[in-house]
Amino acid sequence: MIISNIEVIPGRQVATHLGMVQGNTVRAKHAGKDIMAGFKNIFGGELKSYTELLTEAREEAVARMIRQAESIGANAVLNVRFSTSSISAGAAELFAYGTAVVLEE
């Protein structure tokens, strides 16, 4: 499965266009991590636990998008975009979407 955020895969031709696929996940903050982040709000600096949380969540969103693409028989997802929204205090939604295609071998 090739994932790319450009519209072409160099050297390959798109054989079939299968439409949009997407994956999302909603993650809540961990209470313990939240306390640590509270301290960081005094001193400033990177909130490593949040960085990890979001990286993990983004990987999950991409994995779900890939699963959907596989289920419809795609072998690549092009033009992938990421989006974040916070739906409630302390929870973040990570969202990945792209165009599923079948590339010629």
Binding site: I2, S4, I6, E7, F43, G44, T51, L54
Partner: peptide, 27 residues
């Protein structure tokens, strides 16, 4: 949006980096 036309490309992959930074109390 598109790769340079004269570049021979063997591999293309999505890469990303993320960071969360907090402001300090004074600021």
């Amino acid at each position: 949006r598109f790769p340079p036309a004269d570049m021979a490309i063997s591999e293309s992959k999505l890469v990303g980096g993320t960071v969360v930074i907090s402001i300090d109390y004074f600021k």
